[in-house]
Computed example of a mutant assay.
Amino acid sequence: MLILLPPSEGKRSATAGDPFEYHELSFPDLAADRSLVLRALAEASAGPDAHAVLGVGETLAAEVVRNRTLHAEPSSPAHDVYTGVLYEALGYHGLSPAQQRAADAAVVVVSALWGAVGFADRIPAYRLSMSVALPGLGKLASWWKPRLAGPLGERAAGQLVVDCRSSTYAAAFAPDPARTVSVNVFQVRDGVRKVVSHFAKHTRGELARHLLVRQGAQPETPEELLAAAQEKWTAELEPGTARKAHRLNIVLDG
């Protein structure tokens, strides 16, 4: 099983530790591509229009400045760097050691800066969204798409892919639709299903945790994933097509 997550917008900076090393990150074939993005990000973050290019406000000035020196910043595991609703719901540090090992093996975070990283990969905190167009590279989702196809396609081969990414990050890599299930969350209000971003993120994190802690074998098919989700939620499965992944719809009461 492969669980694809988006990064969080906010990130926790390491207070100590060595800088990241390219050769220690998962998917080492991406090292040259990561170096290009890192250099382009540093240059953009030093420019007079840095905040406009990165799409951030002045309150994030310190994070933009940090983007210039990521090679020297202390690093920590990705599961510590990424924060926010989804990651709080996943609750890595509340897992048992065996469950943490399972998370490290199963979870991959698709990233605007790194392309993709494993959950235990050591990285610094940074500020960059997949929707950003960096000078010289263009929009990062389009830039990464051909570069992620090989390494992530190989990692996903033969696996059930549980896709918990937002659409922005899903645009950077499309796994085999026959073995992929995108996760959608709806809340029922006045009898109408609505997507509420906060609850969607939280429930995707809860689903990832449930898949890591539940008893029994990991799901290997979309139907088995549905059965696992129905252990906790009202859920339904929309079959995919030759070009479109299956859809797991989790329905929350209002």
Rank of each mutant, 00 (worst) to 15 (best):
E9R: 07
R12I: 00
R12S: 13
A14C: 06
G17T: 06
D18K: 08
Y22V: 12
Y22F: 13
S26A: 14
L30I: 02
A31Y: 00
D33V: 08
R34K: 01
R34L: 06
R39C: 04
L41G: 05
G47V: 02
G47M: 01
D49T: 02
H51D: 06
H51I: 08
H51S: 07
A52D: 10
L54E: 09
V56T: 08
T59V: 06
E63N: 08
E63F: 00
E63L: 07
N67T: 06
R68M: 08
E73T: 06
P77E: 04
P77A: 05
A78D: 11
D80R: 15
T83I: 12
V85K: 05
Y87Q: 01
L90K: 03
G91V: 12
G91M: 02
H93Y: 07
H93L: 00
S96R: 04
S96A: 07
A98E: 06
A102S: 00
V107Q: 01
V109K: 01
V109D: 07
V110W: 15
L113D: 02
V117S: 01
G118T: 08
F119D: 14
F119K: 13
F119H: 15
G138Q: 14
L140Q: 07
S142A: 14
W143N: 13
K145V: 00
R155I: 00
R155D: 00
A157E: 14
V161N: 04
C164G: 07
S167T: 04
T168C: 08
A172S: 14
A172N: 12
F173C: 02
A174C: 12
D176T: 01
V183Q: 04
V183C: 08
N184W: 09
F186W: 15
V192I: 09
V195I: 15
H210W: 12
L211T: 10
R214E: 07
A217N: 08
E220P: 11
E224T: 13
L226D: 07
A227Y: 13
A227F: 14
A228T: 05
T234P: 10
E236V: 12
E238Y: 02
E238C: 10
P239Y: 04
G240P: 11
T241G: 15
A242Y: 01
I250L: 14
D253K: 03
